[in-house]
């Protein structure tokens, strides 16, 4: 379970998270929507400790992420994250991209890591691209590779930060299908997305962020069908 308690985060003078409270249960899919600058992406990078926070706490399975005693490298093994920019390692083949962390971080032997990587790459539809270098792949394929790379660490949680925003429109579908598949398999996920119809289909709960505050959270039918907060109403009207 991920527990986010009154988290505040500033970049210089700019406070981007102004006291966020959110619990995500095992097996749950929570989607975060909101305008740019609402703090939604920052929240994800705080959850796995890539960004420090200024106040509050984040607990993952009871471990406080930002406590000094926490081994972040170990904690990150169970929290996968995929970014807007897929960030392939360009000097490694698709297979090596996926096996690197299991081998070096988990100490897995090569054969076992490759077996897992092949399974994950087949899972996301890249079973025929194992020996290819990422620069030869389309954006959508690279993004699916990044998902397989995160999954190969067998994480308990997956964070997706606007993973389709940098893709050409015709490539968005294949990545969303992959996310849908993961959701159906019961992966615990927090997604930041601008794909409203997808958020409606896949989420257990949807949170709307506005200027660093979680203005509203609810089941998709309620949040999209009967938004309570005036900013939610404005936002949904603007993206429709």
């Amino acid at each position: 379970m991920i527990e986010i308690q009154n988290v505040r985060k500033s970049f210089g003078d700019l406070e981007v998270l102004k006291g966020i409270d959110l619990n995500v249960n095992k097996g749950e899919v929570v989607t975060v929507i909101g305008g740019s600058g609402s703090g939604k992406s920052t929240l994800l990078t705080c959850i796995n400790g890539l960004e420090p926070i200024n106040a509050g706490k984040i607990l993952v399975d009871g471990t406080e992420v930002h406590a000094k005693s926490t081994d972040l490298n170990k904690l990150r093994q169970k929290i996968g994250i995929v970014f807007q920019q897929w960030n392939a390692f360009p000097h490694l083949t698709v297979l090596e991209n996926v096996t690197l962390a299991p081998r070096k971080v988990l100490g897995m032997d090569k054969a076992k890591a490759e077996a897992i990587a092949e399974k994950q790459l087949k899972h996301v539809g890249l079973g025929d691209k194992l020996k290819t270098y990422p620069t030869r792949l389309s954006g959508g394929q690279q993004q699916r590779m990044a998902i397989a790379r995160a999954l190969a660490m067998s994480p308990d949680y997956m964070l997706f930060d606007e993973v389709t925003s940098a893709l050409d429109p015709q490539l968005v579908g294949e990545v969303l299908e992959t996310l849908q598949m993961l959701a159906e398999e019961g992966m615990t996920m927090i997604l930041v997305t601008h794909e409203m119809s997808f958020a409606r289909d896949v989420s257990d709960r949807v949170a709307f962020f506005h200027q660093g505050v979680m203005a509203e959270i609810g089941v998709p039918e309620q949040l999209f069908g009967d938004p309570q907060h005036v900013e939610t109403q404005k936002f949904l009207a603007s993206v429709r």
């Binding site: 796995n48 890539l50 490298n73 170990k74 990150r76 093994q77 996968g80 994250i81 970014f83 920019q85 960030n87 390692f89 360009p90 000097h91 690197l100 962390a101 070096k104 971080v105 988990l106 990044a146 790379r149 995160a150 660490m153």
Partner: peptide, 26 residues
């Protein structure tokens, strides 16, 4: 790119592993 290094760290790689397997080869 800082984002590439961030991706490496997000997979649980230490600073040294990021340096050795990602940053220095690139």
């Amino acid at each position: 790119p800082a984002t590439t290094r961030r991706a490496a760290r997000s997979l649980g790689m230490s600073w040294g592993q990021d340096m050795r397997y990602i940053v220095l080869p690139l």
